[in-house]
Each structure stands twice: as structure tokens, then as C-alpha cells.
Design a protein around this nucleic acid. Structure first.
Lengths: 251, 251
DNA sequence: GTATGACAGACCGGCGGTCGGTCGGCAAGT
DNA sequence: ACTTGCCGACCGACCGCCGGTCTGTCATAC
């Protein structure tokens, strides 16, 4: 029997499955939601568009009506994540009464807070993201985040220079470096999480604390600040979060 | 006609195509050679194993006899490149009469020399590597290179600390940062190359020179050295290389 | 009613990977 | 020196699956 014989003459007449029509934004976001959940658990390459549409309850045609390709969906996902990320923490920047160093520290504290409260999710995400097969996903996220946040950081640094407190040779470069360090921390954290799950809690806490202090020193240096100016994160709080993480893990 | 009917009863009897047998190392390296050439021109994803075997004159079966998968071949390629990279420049490190700063500068100078003499190839490679579809290739190369070179750099930095000249909070972290900066330069260079090809040579030279000076300042700072200690690259030489690149480009 | 756009799903080409089969070259037996 | 036998390098038809296309259908707005 030839393959092409079964031309779609009459289809979609199945009354059991009702066709649901939704506003474009809703459908788009539903698809992005599903994709996000799948990408961050199975990885980008391993997730097929069949997986996505199955979870979203949409057909292939529906999918490609909203997105040009699988990668186009990834773009949309990254864009949404980036938008959400920069939305929070804009208020800190707007306050003109704050000096640059305070702004920076508040900014760092803010992101620390956010990381803590979403630590369980981040643990899983970090584990997936570090896997080599997700290089594309990883790179896109980081580049997009850097592109979005670097200008914000640059503003703060420029303020600091104007105030005569910061001293940096290249604002843009330093801002990107600071962010690069922050993202490199993700790989470090993947190791820490592994350690915690292996039961070597004390060791993990010690390493994390040390890392934080050393990164702070690096930040100070890069920004031309006296030692102890930048406050990256509280080591005790971080330790507590790790402890909470351990009890929360299912395996 | 059913698909499976054409079972391979008798095959490979075509006398026109002789079967060539080669030593394993030779074949493996031939395949890696072809893959390298293709990956660095077409990109990793766009290169199919059909492309590779066509170029190498080997069958599918031959390919999978030597490699477990396309990614396994990539691993082998990266490993070979890394091996070659660390092979050169080992002599600098071995010289015990040199102080750490001199070693570092020689090390940087050495890699600068290498980059200059292979500039045309690097231009093409940079253009391909920066494309998002090659994220895997890019990430693997960088990670492998960092993993290989970081210990070498760390050694130098540790020597410098022992000499009381360098002052860094975290040797490993700083070494990785230095390398990260160096690799981030590749993206910067892609922009410079584009500028050169657009005919804005003066602008490109100026930007490159500025970048070099600023990176040097950053290196000094990260290593706790007085300004002007680290000599990354000669701006004039770099400018000349750019000029040579322009005439050498085919388009 | 009718135009429009959201959605359905059979289909396609091509990809990475598999598998039964083939044959060159070396070494042991004579 | 000639045959034989074996091993592993090599072959290529085939497979399953995946991203993407295309024809066709239906809900909704006007």
C-alpha cells in the first residue's frame, strides 16, 4: 500500500475531541509554560515538539501557527524570562537618594533573596543546565541575561565613578565580568548541591562561604573599592538554605 | 512493495569501489580532520555524518566502527585540539630562572604570536563559533581549553604569590576568570573583524587598542599587580595583523 | 453569510544510529 | 612458499524519530 494513498480528505470530524480556541497571548504563554517546564527538566535537545504539544493539548499545526520553529519558541521563552528578571529590582535603581555602592549591594541582596526563595527549583535547573547537551539553552539564557542586566549594572557603576567611589577601566567590560562570575557560580553551585546530596554538608557550607568571600574580594578589586565594600551574600543565610534544601529533596 | 523485502543478501560486490583498509590511528585522525574542517566552516549542527564520511571516503559503518556517535567524534576532536594547545608553550613554564610575571607575559606573548600567525583561520572560526547554532561546539572548546590551561596559569600565579609579587584571593577562580576574559575576547574580535570587512579600519584599530589596554588594567587588578605590569599584546602588531587580514580576505 | 485566523493531523525529507554481512591482511599450520 | 582461518576494519540498506509543511476544518466576529 502506497504511503501517499491516505490523503487527508476528511479529518478533524472526531466529535469526542472538541476544538478549543483561546486568545493568542494565552495559547502562546501556555505553550511557553509547557516548554519551560520540559526544557528545565529534560533539557532542550531531548524535548521534542511532540512532547510540548502533548502537554499543552495542542496540535502540531497549532504549535507552528504560533511559532516559526522550536528555536523560535526558545527565543520567546528566553525573552519572557529576561523580561521577568529585569522587571523585579527596577525600583532599587530608580531611587536617587541611594549612593552607588548601596544600590549595588541592594541589587545583589535582591537577587540573593530571589535565589533563596526559589532555591529548590534552581537546584534542578542548575543540574540540567550544566549538562553539555543543553549548551544552546544555557548560552542563550546567559547571553540574554547579560545583555539585559549589564546596562543596569553599568548605570550603577557609572554613578559610582561620578561619585568618585568606584574606579574601573572599562564599565561595560567590568559589568559583563561581574555577571559572568555570577553565572559561573551556577556551575559551582551544581557541585555544591551534589555535595549536599552526598551528605557532605559541612564541607559544602565551608566551601560556599569561602567562595562568597573570595568573590566579594574580586568584586571589590574589579570595581576599585576598598576590601569589604561589596556584600555579595550572607554566608549564614546561604548555609541555612542549603540545609532546607536537603530536607526538601525527594531522593 | 514492502520496505523490508530488499534484505541485503549479497552486497559490497562492486569491484569498481575498492575497500581500503588503514591503521586505526590514521583513519581516526582522517575522520577527525574532516570533521574539524567541516565543523569550523559549516558549524557542528549543520554538518551531518554523511558529510563527514563523504569527505573522508568512508562508509557509515566505518564511521561508527571508530566512533560511538557524532558527539563522541566531537569529544575526540576537542581532546586533540586541547592536547595540541597545551603542547606548545610548555617550555616557558619549565624555565625555573624566570619570575612569575615574566612567565605570565611570555605566556601571553606566546599565545598572541600563535593567534597572529593563524589569524586568517581564526577569523573564519570566530565567525562560525559565535553563531548560536554552534553553542555546543563553542562551549565544549572553551571548557576543555579552560580545564587544560587553568592549572598552568594557576601554577604561575602561585609562583607569583610565593615570590610576594602577586596577590589574589582565589587562585583557581582568578585563573578561570583570566581565561574567560580571553575567550570573551573572541566575541569581541568577531565584531572587530566585521568592522574591518566593512572598511572601518581606523575605528577597528582604535577599539582593539583600547580594549587591550583596558584588559591589561583588569589583569593587573585581578592579580594584585601595579598598573602596567601585565603586557597582553602589542597594539601596533595587532593593527598590522588586521591590515594584513583585510588584503587576505577573499570576498 | 462570509471572511479570517486559530487549530487539526497526515505527511515528508532527512537525520543519527543499527545491523547483518563482507573482505583485506596477518599468522599459524603444512 | 602456499593454503587456511580468523579477526576486525569496513560496507551500505535500513530503521525510528524528529522538526517542519501543508491541506483542510471549524469557531468566532462582523
Amino acid at each position: 500500500m502506497a504511503r501517499r494513498a491516505a490523503k487527508p480528505k476528511v479529518l478533524d470530524t472526531n466529535p469526542a475531541i472538541a476544538r478549543v480556541v483561546k486568545p493568542v497571548d494565552v495559547r502562546r504563554n501556555e505553550l511557553i509554560d509547557c516548554a519551560q517546564a520540559l526544557f528545565l527538566t529534560k533539557g532542550y535537545e531531548s524535548t521534542t515538539v511532540a512532547d510540548i504539544i502533548a502537554r499543552a493539548g495542542v496540535s502540531k499545526g497549532g504549535f507552528y501557527h504560533h511559532f516559526l520553529s522550536k528555536e523560535d519558541l526558545l527565543d520567546a521563552l528566553i525573552a519572557r524570562m529576561t523580561r521577568q528578571a529585569i522587571a523585579q529590582g527596577e525600583d532599587v535603581l530608580g531611587d536617587p537618594t541611594l549612593d552607588a555602592l548601596t544600590k549595588l549591594n541592594r541589587f545583589l541582596d535582591r537577587s540573593q533573596q530571589w535565589k533563596l526563595q526559589s532555591a529548590p527549583a534552581l537546584r534542578a535547573i542548575a543540574a540540567v543546565l550544566v549538562k553539555p547537551e543543553n549548551a544552546l539553552l544555557y548560552q542563550r539564557m546567559i547571553r540574554s541575561a547579560i545583555a539585559a542586566v549589564a546596562p543596569v549594572l553599568s548605570r550603577i557603576v557609572e554613578d559610582g565613578i561620578r561619585e568618585g567611589v568606584f574606579d574601573v577601566p572599562d564599565v561595560q567590560l567590568v559589568a559583563e565580568l561581574l555577571l559572568t562570575i555570577s553565572f559561573a557560580r551556577q556551575e559551582f553551585m551544581a557541585g555544591i548541591f551534589a555535595m549536599v546530596e552526598a551528605g557532605r554538608m559541612n564541607e559544602a557550607v565551608a566551601m560556599l562561604g569561602q567562595r562568597i568571600h573570595r568573590e566579594e574580594a574580586l568584586f571589590d578589586r574589579l570595581l576599585g573599592l576598598p576590601r569589604g565594600s561589596v556584600h555579595l551574600a550572607d554566608a549564614r543565610v546561604a548555609a541555612k538554605t542549603l540545609a532546607r534544601l536537603r530536607t526538601g529533596s525527594a531522593d
